[in-house]
Every structure is written in structure tokens, then in C-alpha cells.
Design a protein around this nucleic acid. Sequence first.
RNA 1: GCGGAUGUGGUGGAAUUGGUAGACACGCACGCUUGAGGGGCGUGUGGCUUUGCUGUGCGAGUUCGAGUCUCGCCAUCCGCACCA
Length: 865
Amino acid sequence: MDSVNRSGAVSKYSPTEIEAKWQQTWADQGLDTTPEDTTKPKFYALSMFPYPSGNLHMGHVRNYTITDVVARVRRMQGYRVLHPMGWDAFGLPAENAAIDRGIHPAKWTYQNIDQMRAQLQKLGLSYDWNREVATCSPDYYKWTQWSFLQFLEAGLAYQKESAVNWDPIDQTVLANEQVDSAGKSWRSGAKVERKLLRQWFLKITDYADELLSDLDQLPGWPERVRLMQENWIGKSTGAQVVFQTESGDELPVFTTRPDTLWGATFMVLSPEHPLVEKLTTADQAEAVKTYQTAAAAKSDIDRTDDTKEKTGVWTGSFAINPVNDEQIPIWIADYVLMGYGTGAIMAVPAHDQRDFEFARKFSLAIKLVVQPEGDARSGDTLTEAWPGDGVMVNSGPLDGIPAGKGDGQSVAAAIQWLETNGKGKGEANYRLRDWLISRQRYWGVPIPVVHCPSCGIVPVPDDQLPVTLPEDVEFSGRGASPLAKLDHWVNVPCPSCGEPAKRETDTMDTFIDSSWYFLRYADANNEGAIFDSAKVNDWLPVDQYVGGIEHAILHLLYSRFFTKVLRDRGLINIDEPFKRLLTQGMVQAITYKNPQTGKYIPPAEVNPDDPKDPSTGDPLEVFYEKMSKSKYNGVDPKDVLQKYGADTARMFILFKAPPEKDLEWDDADVEGQYRFLNRVWRLVSEFATAHPNAATALPPELSKAEKDLRRAIHTAIKEVSEDIEGDYQFNTAVSELMKLSNALSDAKCADSPVYAEGIETLVKLLAPFAPHIAEELWRQLGHQESVHQSGWPQLDTAALVADEITLVIQIMGKTRGTIQVPASADKAALEQYARESEAAQRYIEGKTIRKVIVVPKKLVNFVLG
RNA sequence: GCGGAUGUGGUGGAAUUGGUAGACACGCACGCUUGAGGGGCGUGUGGCUUUGCUGUGCGAGUUCGAGUCUCGCCAUCCGCACCA
């Protein structure tokens, strides 16, 4: 590693030294402070902010490096760039640390933030730290509460009884994502129960249609994220149809196939449907009760898991089919979910497979109303439901109409008939549910309302915000929210009437904190308002957002929702918060697993050439998996930075895989990047020593060597620029840097101004990727200002033009050789050169040329007869 | 079951969008430098029965020419899943 010293010419590349030096200098000079000069075009580059666990992992490094390259390139290109960082700092881990280790969540969190900030700063990320936010800080959550009150005032926040996941051991409510696939609590391991509780919701369903249709405005998002959101919102169009029970109650149902109404032979209600009790006859009371109890005991997962056998019970009563006045039985079954549609369905067994299975099992009538063409079927002989096309039969006014959802087909005709006759109407239904935001936890934003016996729910007035978290709390991990036990905090006078009242003790889902942080960065230190609207309207939307695919739905959907609500409150004028989105792939590392025992073996204990379990001798499975402690395959960024420096780590991560693909960590490739930076160091250092203050003004005439080098230089400028502007292709951008470096190493004109131009260009192009080494080398070249303020190299397209090109000679489409020809040659000349070529002569001799295809600047293909 | 993505050397990955497949690296081999190791430098590296043939998951097709376009399969990964 000290070979450079032996020559005595230049100093050794010492990353830790120069990285610390330049990080300090840049911070002192405020190089990364957001410019206020609004004459420049703006660019907002953002990484999803982290949860402050205390330790930076490789996934973070990858995420932030990608965004940093984008930000640095834009700065060099003359944009004013906003590139902030902050902390998604509320959440369960802090509270668990308090329960397990007796540290206050606030103390634990702020310690972690300090630790992680220090780690981030060692990566050379160009953040404007003046705009740092932490969602657990009262300065921030004051405005989270204020936002909540905006929702409340707009009628978009409400309380409702809801069935939630209840952990009987920890005595607390859990979010869906905190219950594993077996229906057990992630913390206590207890089987989760369903329990009715009064909870806070945000009415995201009011925005379902816009959240769906505006996905079209996001061409800069990955297709699959848009599709996932589309699926999640789950719009289906159809009709609402009102059935009457014999007792006179209305029983509305939603259906996507209103055209099959004449084939409805029974109805099914969800076991939780409010009308079940009333509809159940005395004879059936016991059976219904038993079924309801069994269904209630099952978690959602159990209920949706047994896809095979249908179960259900008849209520004993009947409904009237509104289209033909037929009497049809009303059943209950758990394949009908209370949370979707109206919690009740009309069952058309001939044309819906679930209804068909149910009808067969309980011997219910099956009536065919769509006759597939050229295939006479009847309900009695069907072996499965027919959901496909055909002609309507047995359907009164619809008879003879072709079945389908198109214009003039059965569905449209049915909806028109329903509306004309007042039996129902066209309607859309969504899978999306309202957002349950209540959490019975301490370490979150208190919901800023007071419950008053006489005034009801009273919002805390703006001038009394924030409702701060009390600090004198006990964390036992048992019972309701720790806040509920603090009488002095709970009991307050009603802000409206002054009588004794009680604070809301639920805190908000932490996804709320992260649903608006990207707006706050535009005006992060505003004490008098959530933000200055003009500043948000100036900076937003985020031009490039980068984060993991795991947020494809929740965070990104919630943020879009918040943005639209705040827009409708007149606070901002944008429809969508994130113009372009990049979902970066996982960072994986080699993993060894013993297939016999199922145990993971630390790589340090395995011989990679012959992977065997050191204790049992079993051959091991070898594969790449996401880094994690339990698999012993994590690589600590700290170790990499210490050994190679941030520049090498950044270069490796950018080069190893395209950003959206999974990246396989490989120490040998990290070494490779370190070697490359060392080569660049020697190349530039040696040049700077030999040619202090070298001129870059070009002579009027260039030699061939100079022209070739200059073409390589400007090809690099072109390719790197394109790679980091369109679809980010940092891997090929880095390979272009390597090509330029190789071209300079091989160049035979080291004393030419062209060579000096090449050296300077290499350093500039390298700057966004490896900012420290580029800065150090730039200064060695004699520059006073920072390379990061030196401007992006200008492309000279004239330099790209070659005097000679390589012409491919093909015979019958097969390449048989190449020749060098003048670039200026026209089609006829190219054909002539090709005919005369040795390669063509060999194959053409004695044959007839039937056709010649000439592709200018590329190839000549001879088709022989 | 529904929807989506991906499939190229020993490995990670390129390919101007129909025009020399394997750029750039990693690894490996050989050579030079070095007391040795490391490092550095140089050369080579898809396969094969090597004047040539063959090759981008498999099989057809379009074309002068296909990794790229069309049709049909296979495999892997991801999301959703009794959604009426």
C-alpha cells in the first residue's frame, strides 16, 4: 500500500485523514447550507428519514449515498438544492427500552440521535443540518397536533367503536403490523383477541378516488409502487341494491354484478352484522349464537385462512329480491366481512364461485342467468360457477342482452334499470379503510382534545399547543397507556366551559409524524406557524425521493393523503408531495445455513471454499440475504469507514448494482473500489506534482493522440451526465469514470493541455461520488475554491466526433470482420470499402450478391444468392 | 388463484433501443517488480472437437440481421388474496 512512497514523488492516499479534514472545513464554511437565491432553479432531494435506533446500517448508507449524489450533481449544475435530514423519533422501541432497561424514552432517543448524527457526518453527506427535525421534539409535534386539529375541523377525524387486536397479556391494543401471521403478538406471544374499542380514525376514504386517479400524475414513480397503491385502494365499481327483509328492514348490499340480481337465490350477512339479532328466529337462535361466538374468537387471519370449506347458519328469516319479489333465505357466514361493502351480500351461486360452494354445501337453489354461448347449461348441472360472458336469461328486462361491463351490456343496463325503478344506484366501493390512528402508548404525539361531560369532544385551543408529554411516567408495560394513570395530567378544566374534564390519553400512530415532515423542512425553524406557505410552495414537491420499498403503501399513501388535505385547507398549493420516487434495493450479504438444524452460521466460522458446519460437519446452504443480526451477516458501516473511508464505501455501493436492485456485499469488490481511488490519487497527484499550474487552453491543432484523449474525456462527460439525469445508473456512471481514468493512464500526451483538461474533468466528475478525495485532489491541482462549487464540466460535442470509425462487415447477417474507414464516408463509399475488404472478399468470391444493406457509421451486410 | 417484475460468462453487471453480446469491475491464470508477504505493473480470460462452430432460461416466429420485436412455455422473486 505504500508503493507510492517508494517513488518519493507524491503522498499516500489516506482517506480517514482527508475525510475528517474536509468534513470539518465544509461545515465551517457552511458549504451545504440551503441557498435562498430564488433566481436559480430549485431542486429538493430527500431520503426517507430514519428511526433513530442508534446504529446506522448499510441500508441507510445506500439510501443516503444515492440521494447525496443526486444533490451534489444538481448543485454543481447550478441548482439551489434543499437536502435535509431528520429523525422519525417516536415509536415503540424507545418505550420498550424504558420498560426493559429503565431509561426514559426521551433520553434514549436523543442519545441515539446524537450517535447516529455523528455516524452520518462521517459519510460526507451534504445535509443542511440547520433544518434538522426530530418528530419527538415539542417544536415539531406542536404542529403535528395542529395538523390533527385541522383534520378535526374539516370533519376528517372522528371516533368510532372498532374491532381491534387486543393483547390479553400486555393489556394493550396492537396495530395490524404488530400481529404475526399466526395471529400472535410480536411482544408477548399471546394469541390476539378481537375487541371492540372506541378509537380515533382519519377519513382517508374521503380521498380514495383522488388518491387513485392522481397516481396517473406520477410517471416518475416505479410502476410497481403505483400498482401496489392501486391494489391497496382497491376500487371496484358496481351498484348498491336495497333488499327488504320480511320484517320491513332495509338491507343494502354492494355488488359488482348487478346484472345477475335475477339469479340471487339467498343472502349472506357477516356474523357481526347489526341486523343479525333482529333477523334470527327463535328456532335458529341457538345455532346463530354459537356460530357468532366461534367467528368472534377467530382472528381475521384465521377467518380468511381456511379457504376450503364454507361454513354458515340460516337465520330463519327471508328477504325479498327487489327485482322479482322472490322470497330468499338470509344466512350468516364468515366469508362475508363486516369491513367491506355493507357487510352483507346477495348470493348468486350460478355466477360466483364462493356462493356456488356455499349453495352446494347447504343445498340452496342455483339459478342460471348468464348463458354461455353455444353451451346450454342449467343451475342443476353446474359443477362450478360461470363468471364469464354470455347472454342474459331468466332476467326479465335484461333477457337477451350480452353479459359484460361494456357499453350497452348487461351491467350498465342493470344499473339503469335499478335507478329508473328506485331499487338501487351505481356505486364504487373501496378496499381502503379509514386510518386507525389511536395508540395506547406513551411515546407518541398526544391527541390534542379534551373530553368534557357537557361539551363533548373539545379541541385544545391553538394557543395551548403543544399538549406536551409529561415526564414523570412509570413504564411497567402493563395496563392501559401510561398517560391514563397520571391523574394530574388527565384532569383538566374544559377549554370551552371550564368545568372538570379529561384529556384524551391516546397518542397518534407514528405514521402521522412522517406524513408531513417533508413540508416542514422547507421552513424548519418556524416557531409561529406550521410553515410559511410561500416557502413550501417554492420548494415542494420533492424532486427526488429515495427510500425502501417497504414504504410503498403506508408512508407514501399517508403522505399523499396529508398533502391533499392540507391543500384543501388552503395551506399549500401542490397535489402530490413526491415528484420522482426511487425505491432502492436491499443490501444483502452472504449467509450460511445448516439445512439439517436450520441454524445460521457466522461467516467467520466458515471456510467459503468448503462451507461446513463447524460443530456438526454438515454441508451448509449458501445464499445472499438481507443483512441482519440473527443471520450473523451484517457488515457494520463503522468498520468499513475505518478501514477504507467513506469515499470507498460510497463508490462500492454505487458501482456494485443499479440502485433499485438488491446489492450483494462483497469485501473483494470493496477492495477493488479502494484500489481504483488509489489509482486516481496517484494519477492526479503525480500530475499535480509534475505540472503545477498546468494550462488547459487548447492549441489550435491537435495530434491524433490528443484528439483520441479528448474524445474519451467528453464521452465521459456525456455518459456520466446522462447516467445521473435520466434513470439513475450510478453503476455505469462509475464505470465511465474508470474508463476515463484508464484512458488517462494510457495516454501518450501527458504534457498536453488536453491531458490537463482530462485530469480536471476526472476530478470534477468524481466529486459527487467520492466528495472528499475529489476535493483534496482539486486543491492539489492548485484551485482555491471547492470542487463542489466549481461547476459541472461542459460537454463539447465537437470533441466526440471521430475521424475514423470501425465498420462491421457482415455476410448474411454474420459478422466476418471489421475495417477502419473515414467517418465522413457516405453510403456508397462505405459499400465500396466493404466490398474491397479482405473479410468480404473471402466470402463473396464466386457467389452472387443479392442485396447489400448499408447502415451509416455502423455496418455493411452482404446478402448472397 | 389474481397482479407485477426478473432470467446474459466462475461472480456483480453492460449493451447507443433491431446492428461487433459480455463494457466496467470482481475472481482466476501467467509474467515482471519485491528478501518474503502485501501492494504495484503487464498479458490473458464465454464455451467447444479452434482456418471453424456455438452462445443471452426453453420452444417457435418476424427480419439481411434478434439479448432487444411477436406468440407459447418454464423457473425464481415480490405484492394482494373468501373484497361480494
